[in-house]
Simulated assay, not measured.
Amino acid sequence: MEASEFDAELDARGLFCPEPVMMLHNRINDVQPGGILRVVATDPSTTRDIPRFCQFLGHELVEQLEQDDLFVYLIRRGS
């Protein structure tokens, strides 16, 4: 995934629930509405928590990938 495909990144590798979503809640505010935040995590619970976060707060989960032991998300910030 090229850096040009996203506006900011959150590296949550090695963190466990609820830390990745808590950090996401703060980091998404650094992205302009309509911008893309890339999140990289190792906690499998993010596969449940991040889609719920997006749905609840009005952000779009553009892409969700599992690469080896990494979970990668592209989130478009809502307005």
Rank of each mutant, 00 (worst) to 15 (best):
M1G: 12
D69K: 14
L24F: 12
R76M: 04
S45Q: 15
I28D: 00
I50H: 03
L10F: 14
H25F: 09
G34A: 08
G58C: 03
F6R: 06
E60L: 00
I28F: 13
A12Q: 13
G34F: 14
T47N: 13
D69W: 09
T47H: 06
E19H: 11
I50G: 05
G14K: 10
A12R: 10
E63H: 03
D69Y: 14
D43C: 02
G58I: 00
I36Y: 04
D30P: 07
E19L: 08
C54L: 04
Q64H: 08
G34N: 06
E60Q: 12
G58A: 05
L37V: 07
S79E: 15
L15K: 07
I50V: 00
P44S: 03
F56I: 01
P44A: 01
F71K: 06
E66I: 01
R48H: 11
C54T: 03
R38V: 08
E9S: 05
L65N: 15
G34L: 07
E63Y: 02
M23E: 15
D11R: 01
L61A: 04
I36T: 09
V72D: 02
F56K: 07
D30M: 11
L15D: 03
D69C: 03
R27Y: 12
G58V: 01
C17M: 12
Y73T: 07
M22L: 11
M22D: 14
V72R: 10
L65G: 09
F53A: 02
D11T: 06
D68T: 13
Q64S: 11
G35L: 11
P20V: 00
H59R: 12
R48Y: 05
G35K: 15
H59M: 00
R48I: 08
V21R: 06
E5K: 12
S4T: 07
D7F: 05
H59I: 00
V21K: 04
G34I: 06
V40Q: 05
S4W: 01
A8H: 13
C54Q: 10
G35T: 09
V62P: 08
D30S: 11
E63D: 13
